[in-house]
């Protein structure tokens, strides 16, 4: 994994990796304001505005296959927070909830081509939000406590 704190900065035009740049400027699966939230069957929110990062995650899970059919999100945060939620949405869609549950902050960081060390802890919250949403699904739709 590249560490962008120590990478050669020659020719570098963006603070983060090309993958972060891509997801930050072209975020995937952002929740559209016109979308009816009723179509999702799980959701979670994590973070606090006072801490600088808030992430809301909405999932549509197929009850039969337990696959994540749709993953929509809203994120208030810095570029790496936005990019990490965006890349996570792509990673999670199509996975079963069991598999998606295991996506770690490290997996997200890797998919983004690395993040500055100090950013990983604070901006990669998406995996926690996803796990919380899956817990929410199990609790409300499957009745698991």
């Amino acid at each position: 994994m590249k560490d962008y704190d120590v990478v050669d900065i020659k020719g570098k035009k963006f603070l983060y990796s090309p993958q972060v740049e891509d997801h930050f400027f072209n975020p995937r699966n952002v929740l559209d304001d016109k979308t009816d939230l009723g179509q999702f069957n799980a959701s979670a929110e994590i973070g606090a505005p006072a801490c600088g990062d808030v992430m809301k995650v909405y999932l549509l899970i197929d009850p039969k296959t337990e696959k994540i059919l749709d993953f929509r999100w809203k994120t208030f945060g810095c570029a790496s927070a936005i990019a990490s939620t965006s890349v996570l949405s792509e990673m999670a869609i199509g996975k079963t909830i069991d598999k998606a549950y295991n996506i770690s902050a490290q997996d997200i960081t890797k998919a983004l081509g690395g993040l500055p060390q100090k950013k990983i802890h604070c901006s990669v919250l998406g995996d926690q939000a996803l796990r919380r949403a899956i817990d929410d699904y199990k609790k409300h739709y499957l009745g698991v406590k």
Partner: peptide, 8 residues
């Protein structure tokens, strides 16, 4: 968020 706005 400030950093996001500055980068955009």
């Amino acid at each position: 968020e400030g950093e996001s706005l500055v980068l955009r």
